[in-house]
Design a protein around this nucleic acid. Sequence first.
DNA 1: AATCGTTATATTTTAAAAGACATAACGATG
DNA 2: CATCGTTATGTCTTTTAAAATATAACGATT
Lengths: 123, 123
Amino acid sequence: MADPIKNILKNNHDIKVNGSLWLESADGHFFGPGPVELLERIAETGSINMAAKAMNMSYKKAWALVNALNTQTSTPVVIAQTGGKKGGGSTVTHEAIELIKYHRQLRERFKDFLEKETQLLKT
Amino acid sequence: MADPIKNILKNNHDIKVNGSLWLESADGHFFGPGPVELLERIAETGSINMAAKAMNMSYKKAWALVNALNTQTSTPVVIAQTGGKKGGGSTVTHEAIELIKYHRQLRERFKDFLEKETQLLKT
DNA sequence: AATCGTTATATTTTAAAAGACATAACGATG
DNA sequence: CATCGTTATGTCTTTTAAAATATAACGATT
């Protein structure tokens, strides 16, 4: 029979199957783990700036992500307000929350898949 | 209830869940789609050089991949021979074939997962 | 010992991505 | 109407990754 994979690999302990998921359309992928976390942080902090800092990302990159998301959804997911009492801020729409929830569940299912495969690897 | 995701996304047709899988150990990931294809091509052509060309990869990168694989497996997966009647060449070990087979099956199961999720996305 | 195409490796160049920095607009509020 | 922190952009620099180029070793075969 075939050799178990674990015997082929060096350091066969702590070897695991890992991966990444994203949503994509014809014009490339656009909704991966990064944007999701950003949305979550914006929802928490009410600010693109603070959200970016919290995940150690430049404001510019964060803004670009938000902008990309907003143009790729039929309804904006982040509503930014410039000026105002606190200088401005951003809120997250109902749709964004749905996206976040969806992605959390998706990630959960993916995690199950990965764990199952990792187990299989060790047999 | 929650809005279906497809209604949130623009271009809701041809939207799909996609992803990537790899094996990884404590010291980073090392066995992704690229290396697998490379092994397959080396098995076909008997040469790292030709395999690299076939997948439009520089020889250097191909060699680096092979080298990484060989150092991360308990037994080499590619045996390279320098010099010789045809200048040299490379063969693939039994273990490499096992790895290829494993990865094909893994990819098949992943494909199922992705298709299931893509369907779910459209409901 | 000359030849051949491949392996093996170093060095340089190019390209792309990321990061740093700078600046203006904005508008509620005091 | 001056202030504030945020949004919104542009530009310039740095870092990183990839690609291109160059060169030597290798050994069966002729």
